[in-house]
């Protein structure tokens, strides 16, 4: 082989290495890509991000719709950070979405606390199980539901995000949770 041909082979090896490297990198970015997309979608719906937190595995977000004081909380966990898992079962994430409302009525808070106690007996790790929670410090009552989502539905290989679909899915979940909470509070 000539020197030029050898250089071409070398360049192709480096090029292929970058492709593999980028594929792994993108897979590790998936949870934070989801985090960013949830922030962009929810802020676009009129909510303000008021808390952003992470314990290294789970990411936590809290939003408030300032005119109505309603809040949304999210817990996002990438379940396929490992490339092998992602290739075999697809890219999945566990998402807990919560809807909170400020409540002045002590009776409603007491009811929520009783529900919170009962919620402790449910297996909240199962998807679709709606649990109730109260934050006495800020006077908010939340209902929340865990879901498992297919990340490939929202993100393409090149970091393209399907924001309308993500907004629709968040909106539908929040609608159902708010209806459930209003029903519980008798509003």
């Amino acid at each position: 082989m000539s020197a030029e041909e050898l250089e071409k082979v070398f360049v192709s090896l480096v090029d292929a290495s970058w492709k593999k490297y980028n594929e792994r990198q993108q897979n590790t970015h998936m949870d934070e890509l989801l985090l960013g997309s949830v922030i962009a979608s929810t802020v676009e719906q009129g909510y303000s991000l008021i808390d952003l937190n992470s314990d290294g595995v789970n990411h936590f977000l809290r939003f408030e719709h300032l005119p109505s004081k309603t809040r949304l909380i999210f817990q996002l966990t990438n379940q396929s950070e490992d490339l092998v898992t992602a290739k075999v079962i697809g890219r999945q994430a566990r998402v807990v979405i919560g809807y909170g409302q400020m409540v002045q009525n002590p009776g409603a808070i007491w009811q929520a606390l009783k529900s919170e106690f009962k919620s402790g007996f449910l297996d909240a790790a199962e998807p679709g199980v709606i649990t109730c929670d109260a934050d006495l410090a800020s006077g908010y009552i939340y209902v929340q539901v865990p879901l498992i989502i297919d990340l490939d539905t929202y993100f393409s290989a090149g970091y393209e995000v399907n924001y309308p679909l993500l907004q629709q899915h968040i909106g539908a979940t929040v609608h159902s949770l708010s209806k459930y909470l209003r029903g519980r509070l008798g509003a």
Partner: peptide
């Protein structure tokens, strides 16, 4: 609070 609510700063 039984869930991840305690991950957030409260009363701020």
């Amino acid at each position: 609070m039984l869930s991840f609510l305690n991950q957030f700063k409260h009363g701020q």
